[in-house]
Design a protein around this nucleic acid. Sequence first.
DNA 1: AGTAGCCGGTCAAAGGTCAG
DNA 2: GCTGACCTTTGACCGGCTAC
Lengths: 477, 477
Amino acid sequence: MRVHRTGLDLDTTDYSINMDPSYTMLEFDSLRALPEEAESLVPVAASSPPPSNGNLCSICADRATGKHYGAASCDGCKGFFRRSVRKNHAYQCRFSRQCVVDKDKRNHCRYCRLRKCFRAGMRKEAVQNERDRISCRRDGQGAGTLSISMLLQAEASTHQLQSSALGIPCDTGMKKVARVGDVCESMKQQLLLLVEWAKRIPGFCELPVDDRVALLRAHSAEHLILGAARRSLPYNDIILLGNDFIISVNGSEMEVSKVAVRILEELVRPLRELDVTDVEFACLKAIIFFAPDCPGLQNPQAVRQIRFQAQVLLDEASYEQRGRFGELLLMLPPLQSVAWQMVEQLQLARLLGEASVDSLLQEMLLGEGADGARAGTGTGAEAATGAVAKGPETGSHTEVFSFMSPGDPAMACGPLGAQGVLPNQFISVILPVPNSLPGLALVPTQTGTEVYRPGEEAGMAQEMPNSMSLPHMHTCF
Amino acid sequence: MRVHRTGLDLDTTDYSINMDPSYTMLEFDSLRALPEEAESLVPVAASSPPPSNGNLCSICADRATGKHYGAASCDGCKGFFRRSVRKNHAYQCRFSRQCVVDKDKRNHCRYCRLRKCFRAGMRKEAVQNERDRISCRRDGQGAGTLSISMLLQAEASTHQLQSSALGIPCDTGMKKVARVGDVCESMKQQLLLLVEWAKRIPGFCELPVDDRVALLRAHSAEHLILGAARRSLPYNDIILLGNDFIISVNGSEMEVSKVAVRILEELVRPLRELDVTDVEFACLKAIIFFAPDCPGLQNPQAVRQIRFQAQVLLDEASYEQRGRFGELLLMLPPLQSVAWQMVEQLQLARLLGEASVDSLLQEMLLGEGADGARAGTGTGAEAATGAVAKGPETGSHTEVFSFMSPGDPAMACGPLGAQGVLPNQFISVILPVPNSLPGLALVPTQTGTEVYRPGEEAGMAQEMPNSMSLPHMHTCF
DNA sequence: AGTAGCCGGTCAAAGGTCAG
DNA sequence: GCTGACCTTTGACCGGCTAC
């Protein structure tokens, strides 16, 4: 054990500097040290080539001697992990399980050290096992590797677009209370931004086009709600829409304000209490988006893998505070619930003629003709294997009740025939930019399948023929 | 531990640099410098090794156990030096700082002993930070907190009850395919077991009675689904019910089998891939149960705290596999989704007269007259503060659509008047044990508010008058 | 054939323990 | 409370195997 100094005793200065390392940086390091994979859990979560931390131990930030048991680590953490696994040690933290694990203090708490080993990607299966090592599979490289910076960029780009492209003044003092139409307009804008966001995620662009469509539809309502909640964090008792209208608890129409109250109580309040960071928001968004049990996915495993990465990124980003990661993930069920209620309200408003719902909202939010707008709904991600084959029974009571709720199970399990038809039409609708967002510039997607044709987008969403894209739902009305 | 110092020991300079820590041992540092003559470049260690040879302590001439902190020394001097440095002890010589330090008299003067340690070449830099305790782990188990063993006990007790109390053989080969009635019967049994389970959780028993009722209602459907999924893990393509009936993907009625497919695809499959443990199941159950955004809670913070504990327990139980905790929590949104679909099916079946839904199912699953059976729904946990005050608008379109879906928002946000009326009645219904579970013995709860009265429970659920307990929902039909 | 990467093992020298 | 005989843990270094 080299007590402190290496042969070259120049470390002394470094030492005093490292005494108080910004812990976040250490986290960042370990965060980049994404492990190869997580067993059967997820195929191959690509190992990220650690750009900055090069040869730092992802557990304690000491000098790493290579990858050991799945994580770049120093000899100390390597030996510690091996001994712990071999002897099946059950450590206990004498404090609150948030001990700092760095070069100086790594021996202070074995529980927290071991835990950080696991978090950094060490796997106990790698101990004592064969020497073969799967290191051949080490480079997933660019394919499907998520990173914080990528997510932040995607987020920033849509925010840029939002504030610069909208012709509506965003910073004037008095904000107008939104009416139903304003809400719909805002939702539409936000949905377009969601598409933009998704296109900035390389993993998304590499998915089959049908899967991309499915993902865009599946949780769009939750993204709207999450975005609204986030936007409203600085305010009290109002929801700030993307188009600068507000929804007030007291001053808005009843149907609208009911959802608003839930957003404030169940989402804004806990988000505020957690003081969620931008990074955490970005991760949450990706976690919601890449839902592997989204109905009709051709390649759910790829989606699961991306979500896994996002989930691990969030874990790393929120590691410093004990229990924080769990609290963040536990926002998702209420978010889903509120989102559904919003969709129901929208449905209702449309039925009553209070809102004009254009095709975009129809297809993304109301899940027209498909299973969209519902979380983890439908026959399941892998349903295409057979369970869906007996779909056509939907007709029995379905048509009667299908208008009951956009989340009606009969709809969700409806024939998947629409999948073959809808997606391409759908994507042609949502990818071009309507005039309402004049400054919005689309970057070409990496797959090149969708092309932005400047002349064709105007009013397209409204004018799109429904005959093909709404094969099922519209027959119910 | 190898101390990697070469013959060139530049510590002298370091020493003077490190002088600051207001340490009275500084005295010894300078003292140590004293013996050096003009040649301060000569390493101390090189000059120190006194005639005292390999296996003699260079401080007290006792038998040395090796090199410690830079000098061959015995365990006594080693420990003495470590303690002195660690505790920053300031000794004083009562004589003239010329005390003899040998095996016999080494404890006579700590000042002179420590000085001799330094002179022999011991360096305080070689003393490390305090480490973790090796043995004797004291369990700082706080009272009133959740624990794994508590959760496992609660789980085990309901399993015991289940297998011993049911008059139905559980291990015969051929299992019967459930019809709608069988499903309902199973659900009812499981809901009663859920109540039993909850009563084994001390934190639950300490909640206000209305909150206990609210929690029991809020996510009962998810518990049924989770239980079914868990029970079905060992099988393929079937759902095993608690009463030993099965739901087959192919052989069951359509409505039932649709939910079954989703359970299999979205829940059983990932749970199986994760190979979820009993402990993890137990934690998940508690996390689902203690939902702080359950509508109408008087004390959401207490519930949030319990869930936090459960969530942290799960984290600790699953931290050995990277990303596992997140994957487990991410089962909850699809679970919620499937649960709602099941409730909708149940509602539908009841509408069509296919199922006889008794009061228990009505109140716990369908959320009659309250917001139950929905996850994180309603006006929010803290809604009672004011948002609900303007509830009565529910009547507008609500009655028309309230049967649309058990999760209908209009219902969820309905007047909370029911809360004052329902709970106590409700709890009186679900706490006694119907005859269908003859062997089920209730343990008295710790609060003592509910008492098991053996003579009164028979058929109570069925016979309970609906007039009070279903003030809202039943008027819709 | 050589080298890089990762696993296993070793053991001096850290650490902690707990009667006395 | 300190001491020190006795035990555990740490980690720098090295040997060996596999893949490229």
